[in-house]
């Protein structure tokens, strides 16, 4: 009798994967344009900029009080959050999430890109905010870098929370926690200011800011390859 040789398990697995690859190769999507990413967002963008202008006015009023760096920091992610929640709300009210999720550029991927672009934009806006408050030199850079990290990280966490729970209610925890933390920190504003401006070196601030932006970019790439399934 002839002995029959069965292929080993790994080999079967390899062959399977090779077949899958040829069936419909996975390729990266080309990035959709701004028009696709921000489509139908105009009213929400306008409201968010309204909130930004309001914050700007508020900061100009503060000028330079010992507390103002912290307050500026506190305000940093607010424009972002207002855009984030309003943007979801608009899509849900129109009942288009399910439909959009079935498209090539699935809803979650688009939201992720939208939030990435918008948080980069708010970083720029917030730089204006700090300038308006009259910071200069190293203080300006420290504060801007700390604010940028805070802003990008909170955007990233809100998206991850949404991905894990499938509901935006949960990510409402983040701005709430942020505000409470800032109110507490305001009581120790002198120490916190010293920590931010003097103790933590400028280079660390910048590394953290660049690092969080890189993390966001990586995350967006990960979401792109995901399925509607995984949300």
């Amino acid at each position: 009798m002839m002995p029959i040789e069965y292929p080993v398990r790994e080999e079967i697995q390899r062959t399977k994967e090779a077949v899958l690859q040829t069936a419909l190769p996975r390729r990266r999507l080309s990035r959709p344009g701004l028009r696709t990413v921000f489509g139908r967002c105009a009213p929400v963008l306008l409201i968010s900029f309204g909130i930004y202008l309001f914050l700007l006015g508020f900061c100009l009023m503060l000028e330079r009080s010992p507390r103002s760096p912290l307050i500026v920091l506190l305000l940093y992610p607010l424009t972002y959050y207002s855009f984030y929640f309003l943007s979801f709300r608009m899509e849900r009210e129109n009942g288009v999430i399910e439909l959009k999720q079935s498209f090539k550029y699935a809803f979650h991927y688009l939201i992720c890109l939208r939030m990435l672009y918008f948080s980069v934009l708010t970083v720029y806006l917030n730089l204006l905010l700090i300038t308006a408050c009259g910071f200069d030199g190293n203080n300006f850079i420290s504060l801007a870098a700390a604010g940028t990290s805070a802003q990008i990280l909170s955007a990233l966490f809100s998206l991850i929370l949404y991905e894990k729970t499938g509901s935006i209610r949960c990510s409402a925890v983040l701005p709430a926690v942020w505000i409470i933390a800032c109110i507490v920190l305001l009581r120790y504003s002198e120490h916190v200011n010293r920590l931010l401006m003097e103790i933590i070196p400028l280079s660390l601030h910048i590394i953290v800011a660049v690092g969080s932006l890189a993390a966001f970019l990586l995350y967006t790439g990960k979401v792109e390859l995901k399925n509607a399934y995984d949300f």
Binding site: L20, A23, R26, N94, K104
Partner: peptide, 29 residues
């Protein structure tokens, strides 16, 4: 499976070939 490949694995290249009408169809007024 779509042509033998699990659709979970195909991602956007599978969604590209679908035309879907949900039961509750959403639109911008």
């Amino acid at each position: 499976l779509w042509n033998g490949a699990p659709v979970q694995k195909l991602g956007a290249s599978y969604r590209e070939i679908i035309g879907y009408l949900p039961q509750q169809f959403g639109y911008y007024k």
